[in-house]
């Protein structure tokens, strides 16, 4: 059943193919034109992750949510499918960006031996994972917002939620500082250097999981 929903969304997204090719070409040119080559994978990952969420708009435009509920598919599967699509698009987009950046960087180094760009695989990998984490954070907030308020209103509500989270973070930081807690920056840096990537990936999964639970709770009782 999830396969059917995925197919439906992928067919909907197929209408984006021309725009996608243009975006990738644009990113390719941008990668060539700059030494900040590592951003290529991040930008393409973000595009992939964000485009996957436009399937909500397609569903709204076709008023398909009500019809989908008449098919042999549970509400849980409907919610799960959106997460599979979002995660899949982010991972595939980032992977594609990773490969594209490597390819273009090496081609350019071959063509411009006098202007060699230093491509560190480790840095490119770290940047890609960092970018994926950023996308997962936005998706984890945006998907429940869309399930609750719809794709138009959901975007506005998402910004409000992010704004509130930043405020809460700042207030918490302020109180921690006032309470006299001292953070061992050196220790923190060592932990981040050794386990940073694993932590980011784990955190992404935790965020997606919590986000999925919230989305399902919203959609379980939603009336179409």
């Amino acid at each position: 059943m999830i396969k059917g929903l995925l197919k439906k969304d992928l067919y909907n997204l197929a209408s984006y193919k021309t725009s996608l090719i243009i975006i990738v070409l644009f990113c390719g040119i941008a990668i060539i034109g700059t030494d900040a080559i590592y951003w290529g994978s991040v930008v393409i990952g973000i595009i992939g992750g964000m485009i996957s969420l436009s399937t909500f708009s397609y569903d709204e435009m076709s008023k398909s949510n009500r019809y989908i509920l008449t098919l042999p598919v549970t509400r849980k599967e409907i919610v799960l499918e959106k997460y599979i699509l979002a995660i899949g698009a982010t991972v595939l987009g980032s992977l594609f960006g990773f490969v594209l950046t490597l390819f273009i960087g090496n081609v350019m180094n071959y063509l411009r031996p006098d202007h060699i760009i230093d491509i560190s695989l480790e840095t490119l990998f770290n940047t890609t994972i960092g970018g994926m984490f950023g996308v997962s954070l936005i998706q984890a907030i945006q998907i429940p917002s869309i399930f609750k308020w719809g794709s138009e209103k959901g975007r506005i509500q998402m910004f409000i939620i992010i704004f509130l989270l930043v405020i809460i973070g700042a207030v918490l930081g302020f109180f921690i500082q006032q309470a006299g807690f001292s953070i061992n920056i050196e220790k923190l840096e060592t932990v981040l250097k050794n386990f940073g990537l694993v932590l980011l990936v784990l955190l992404s999964f935790v965020m997606y999981f919590i986000s999925y639970k919230i989305s399902y709770k919203i959609y379980k009782n939603k009336e179409e």
Partner: peptide, 22 residues
């Protein structure tokens, strides 16, 4: 349903391919 269907951005052929999975 009067006002709702799977998607307006699919072709009948694609609809069949989706429905096979349901």
């Amino acid at each position: 349903l009067d006002d709702s269907f799977l998607s307006n951005y699919l072709t009948p052929k694609q609809i069949s391919s989706v429905m096979k999975d349901f």
